[in-house]
Every structure is written in C-alpha cells, then in structure tokens.
C-alpha cells in the first residue's frame, strides 16, 4: 500500500463517531444522551423502518487543543443524515446549552440532505429551531463552525444552517447547496442539471467552488487530522462578532454584486474565469495547497 494513503483517514468515508474521535483531543469525548440511554425514533418504527439509538446524530462535550468545545456530528449513513424530531431536538438542546455554558466553540459536523421526509413536519420545524439556536449561540459570543465533507454534504435546510454558522470548513469532496442535483433534474429536466455528471455537480456545489467564491472560509484535505488542524487554525484568535447592521449591509452588498455579475452563469468554470483565474479548466485537477495558493493570489 502507498504509505501516504495508508496514513490517511478519510473524513468522507468515516462514520460520525470516527470523525469525532479523530477531531477531539484523545480521551476528551463525552457524549450527552448516549445510545444506551436513548430510544430510536418511534416515527420510523410506525413506518416499519428500523431506527438508530442515537437517531443519526451525536452530541457531545470535548476538548480541542485543551479548549472546551461542544460538538454535533450527523451520521450520513443513517437516513442520509436527515433531520427528524429526536435528531433535531438533540442539536437544538446542545446549541441552547452553549448559550448558557459558553464553550470556546460549537463544532457542527454536517452530513445531511436536510429534512427527514418520514418526519417531514417535525424535521422542518426542527431545522427552523436549529437556525434560530445557531444564531442565538453566535449572539452569545460562541462561534459555531460548520465542517462539511461527508458523503451527504450539506443540503436542503442543513445547507441554510451551514451558511448561518460563523464559518464553514469544507473539503474538496464536500458539497454545499440547497436543492440536490437529483431534485433539480427530476423537476426541471436533465438539460437543466445532469445529476449523474459528477464533475459538473462538483463544479456547481463542491468544496473547491464554494471556497473560491468565498462561501467557505477554509478548504482542507479529505482527512480527519486536516479538519482538526483547520478548526484549530480558525479558532486561534477568533472573535465572534455581535450581529450588526454594518456587517449585514456588507453581506447584502457582496451578494447583490455577485448576482449582478454572475446571474447568467451555469458552470463553475465561468465563475472561476470571471474571478480572474487564468486556466479555470485546471481547477478540478489542482491539489488543495495549490488551490489555496491560487485563491490567495486572486485580485480582491
């Protein structure tokens, strides 16, 4: 086996629990409402489906480089990481707890297609509650950092939640969007979005594109230690700003300018060229370090 591959711990492939084990300081993981103390979703049982003891999300205390942190990790392999009643309530509870206890950060390991259709109303309201709870934690001075690099990405309501966080750390394999390409293809046709064209899907929703456009703060390798290093780097000296009119006005301006400039584009290649990248077609082939260097050299 190639040594560099042997030593790599893919975030994409790992379970939620394995991600947490590699992200937090060794021995610091302390789960709240662990599987032995919880019950699977009765709503899934009603539909004759097996549930999971943790309902697809782990909430915990822990430490990162000795700093106290809270973490939320969604399990993408269970029901696509989708948010049901119990799943959502665990997240809301932890975020509210963060308002009281003020850990150094809440790390939100998002791996979710959004609302769990089997519990659609409970899931939609829960995501709305998560949205408000994320903003409450941030207003209390607690940074909420989204980590996106799992097989389900961050879609639907969880895509909105990701963008409400203080910052997003994403891997090249990570995807961040609202509607999944399959949904768009089903409703609007394959000419609008060919969900089987993986390269296109990544040029529209993938980590490199979101990083180049500034929607994600950091791009990291698909590697658990790389996410850990990325979080530590981001949190060093991070000051969670109080919500303010000036900052929201600035965001509004950025989004309006971007829409005015790129509204007709349909492919990342067009946006990257407009950002000043001389050879946009080379972007998908660049490794992480080269891409970060490329972005840092772009005109602002």
């Amino acid at each position: 086996m190639i040594p560099s591959l042997a030593s790599r711990h893919s975030w994409f492939e790992a379970t939620a629990r394995a991600r947490l084990a590699g992200l937090l300081d060794p021995g610091s993981f302390a789960e709240i409402l662990p599987p032995a103390e919880s019950q699977p979703s009765p709503h899934l049982a009603m539909l004759d489906l097996p549930g999971a003891f943790d309902d697809g999300v782990v909430v915990c205390y822990g430490q990162l480089e000795k700093k106290p942190i809270f973490a939320i990790a969604q399990e993408g392999q269970f029901m696509g990481g989708a948010v049901g009643e119990i799943h959502g309530a665990k997240i809301v509870g932890l975020l509210r707890r963060a308002v009281q206890e003020k850990p150094a950060a809440v790390l939100f390991l998002i791996d979710s297609g959004g609302v769990r259709l089997h519990e659609a109303n409970a899931g939609l309201i829960a995501i709305s509650e998560i949205m408000r709870a994320v903003l409450d934690a941030r207003a209390a001075g607690v940074p909420v950092i989204a980590l996106v690099g799992g097989s389900c990405g961050a879609f639907g309501g969880m895509g909105i939640v990701a963008k409400l966080c203080s910052a997003i750390i994403i891997s090249e394999e990570g995807r961040l969007a609202l509607s999944g390409p399959e949904v768009i293809e089903t409703v609007a046709g394959v000419e609008e979005f060919d969900a089987k064209d993986r390269a296109l899907v990544w040029r529209v929703t993938g980590g490199k594109h979101r990083y180049l456009m500034g929607d994600c703060a950091e791009l990291v390798e698909d590697d658990i230690p790389a996410f850990r290093t990325g979080v530590a780097k981001l949190l060093a000296g991070w000051q969670e700003a109080a919500p303010g009119l000036a900052q929201l006005r600035a965001s509004q301006q950025v989004l309006e300018n971007r829409l005015a400039a790129y509204a007709t584009y349909r492919d990342g290649l067009q946006v990257w060229a407009a950002l000043g990248i001389a050879r946009p077609d080379s972007v998908p082939l660049l490794d992480r370090d080269s891409l970060v260097a490329l972005k840092e050299g772009l005109p602002t």
Partner: peptide
C-alpha cells in the same frame, strides 16, 4: 430549482435573509 441559482449558493442568500429577520 435551477443550476445557475445553486451555482451562486442559493442556501447562502436564504441564510442571509434569515439572519436579517433574526
């Protein structure tokens, strides 16, 4: 539901709107 909307991170604009209401 469109590719050009997703290309510009539609979830980001919806999150911005939610932030402003909040």
């Amino acid at each position: 539901l469109s590719r050009s909307q997703e290309l510009l991170c539609l979830n980001g604009s919806l999150a911005h709107l939610a932030s402003c209401v909040d």
